[in-house]
């Protein structure tokens, strides 16, 4: 059983924890040992958040290792750009085509890196980079907050587990009121990869 390491990076409030919970439960369902580490508290207030998820035969550390991450999922472009050192050269990088300015940029004291610069950072070792319009897709479905599940849908196309198996864990973790939205978001995320 191959070890698979994931890193989900975004801005506090974007729903990285829900996405990593779903990813964790799917791993367990598929028979992996699973560990995940998340950030709560202070970082929720619009700060940087990184969620680590590890699937493997036997996982010790809940934190991923530098240079070993197989899948980086960026919920926001700049947040994805912080993690090149963590990716393996074969990594697949899925990034939401969405920008949230940090305060220093809004105040004109720093500049947001151009998209092509972010792209070259994320592919410097030969990683495969995929842009997904996850926030736009989720916004059009009725709620931008479902962007994380769109990204998860895209990620799922590289992993084991049938669409139904993923949907079961989504249904287990998403409140009933938002379930239909998130199911659609997941399907749209998968579709974005096939387009």
């Amino acid at each position: 059983m191959k070890n698979i390491d994931f890193l989900l990076a975004g801005v506090g409030g974007q729903g990285t924890i829900l996405a990593s919970n779903i990813l964790g439960q799917v791993g367990l369902k598929l028979g992996y040992d699973v560990k995940k580490a998340e950030v709560h508290g202070m970082a929720m207030r619009g700060g940087m958040v990184d969620n680590h998820v590890r699937w493997g035969e036997k996982v010790y550390s809940p934190l991923v290792f530098k240079g070993k991450v197989d899948y980086l999922v960026g919920f926001e472009m700049l947040e994805a750009a912080r993690w090149p050192a963590y990716m393996s050269s074969n990594a697949i990088v899925i990034v939401n085509n969405y920008r949230i300015n940090p305060p220093s940029v809004n105040m004109g004291k720093a500049s947001y890196p151009p998209k092509d610069e972010i792209a070259s950072l994320l592919t410097a070792k030969g990683e495969r980079l995929i842009w997904v319009d996850a926030t736009d897709i989720a916004y059009n479905l009725g709620n931008a907050a479902a962007a994380g599940v769109v990204l998860l849908g895209s990620l799922s196309t590289f992993l084991d587990g049938s669409e139904e198996e993923w949907m079961e864990e989504i249904a287990d973790l998403v409140p009933p009121k938002f379930l239909e939205l998130n199911k659609q978001a997941f399907v749209e995320g998968r579709r974005a990869m096939n387009a």
Partner: peptide, 8 residues
Amino acid sequence: LPNRPPML
């Protein structure tokens, strides 16, 4: 890269 501190 520009830092992103937590905000109100």
